[in-house]
Design a protein around this nucleic acid. Structure first.
Lengths: 214, 214
DNA sequence: ATTTGTGAACAGTTTCACAGCG
DNA sequence: CGCTGTGAAACTGTTCACAAAT
């Protein structure tokens, strides 16, 4: 299978999210346009990148689409282990988040530099002092890190995460992380998001009828 | 001034974040490449979209760059009002978040459908039952909403937010919101972010030496 | 009749390469 | 000499429009 271009990747993730709550048997590219906000043509292109060809005329079979999406998004096979680094307000809010319950993503560990916190807090998975970071990530085979530390810790911790082979970081800090090109970073801090919303958009660029980014 | 193309917008936001913690007087496009992960050439293009021309030779003057970025990101002038809708775990974590303290973004109200919560919780700004949503947003002139409600509430609340003229939504739910093209949505749910990291990237698309998205 | 899948045209974005400035 | 700023080229991504499929 070919590599999926950047913009399509983002849309395919949103399409997976969209279909997860969709109960009809089939869906047309026009219906996706209505629900997701990007053009039907672009959806047909995106889907043609998958290896699904559901014939024609009555739209895509939802079950088949979901399967193909799970495959390309890597969320079909084994569980994927994550860890939370930083157990302040935000980290704690994510601790008992039910959002990942029915998914392949499993939180396997939590870290904080305050031993106090790691001993007092309760979770469905073990909490460790940050000194154990490298050891636990390697032993558990953790792929993704959720970064919820204080800003001044963000860059040094990111470097440690990269050094022990993490594959991607969900960055809840407003810092820009300098990491090896091999490691993916998703910036999801409130401030970054608000600034992105706030950008002057007098005369939007083509193809951007609706701004929709993951 | 011309409209800023989509990809440049995202990078300019990250550049602003980057410079906020940068103490040198000047910065070169090569230094930005090292820190942010995209090419120096693309940075020079991005900056040329701003109306800064800082001559040549010893890099950009950081102060001048910051000013131009604040202008184009709309974060120079008056405070911009936000509200939090949904005061569960995540909403509460954002309540006393210090992240927005030194910024133009001010949280002006919080909403929850449980009156219990709005009465028990403490914040620097008033908390209201969700029934008051439209009235408070209009009266306060709130521009942005931070959506931290339960998934089943996400779409109906989004529609109410749009109907009372909100300009953008930071979406902490894993739902794809169907809203008018005029309203921007930033999807920052943990699940969406993890799925984006997880996408098969054997053979990345060009220009994507590092994945960096807001 | 409706909707997919795709070649071809178009539009947007990045890279290259270098003239010109400090 | 190093670095910016930018034409021009290369490339990526989107839209159009229609033949094929059901």
């Amino acid at each position: 299978m070919r590599a999926i271009p950047g913009p399509s990747r983002k849309r395919l993730v949103l399409l997976e999210r969209l279909l997860s709550g969709y109960t009809e048997k089939t869906i047309t590219s026009q219906e996706i346009e209505r629900l997701a906000g990007w053009s039907a043509a672009v959806t047909r292109r995106d889907i043609s990148l998958l290896d699904v060809r559901c014939g024609a005329s009555n739209g895509y079979r939802v079950a088949e689409l979901k399967e193909a999406l799970n495959l390309v998004l890597n969320i079909s096979s084994e569980p994927q282990k994550c860890c939370i680094v930083g157990l302040g307000r935000m980290g704690q809010a994510l601790l008992d988040n039910t959002e990942l319950e029915a998914t392949v993503f499993k939180i396997a560990a939590g870290f904080d530099s305050s031993v106090n916190r790691t001993e007092i807090l309760h979770a469905m998975f073990p909490l460790h002092p940050t000194t154990m970071l490298e050891q636990v990530i390697r032993e558990e085979g953790i792929s993704y890190a959720i970064l919820t530390v204080e800003p001044q810790e963000a860059q040094p911790i990111a470097e440690r995460l990269v050094s022990c082979g993490i594959r991607g970081i969900v960055n809840y800090t407003p810092c820009v992380l300098s990491v090896s090109p091999a490691v993916h970073v998703e910036n999801v801090s409130l401030l970054t998001a608000l600034e992105t919303l706030s950008v002057n958009t007098r005369g939007q660029a083509a193809g951007e009828t609706r701004t929709h980014s993951a």
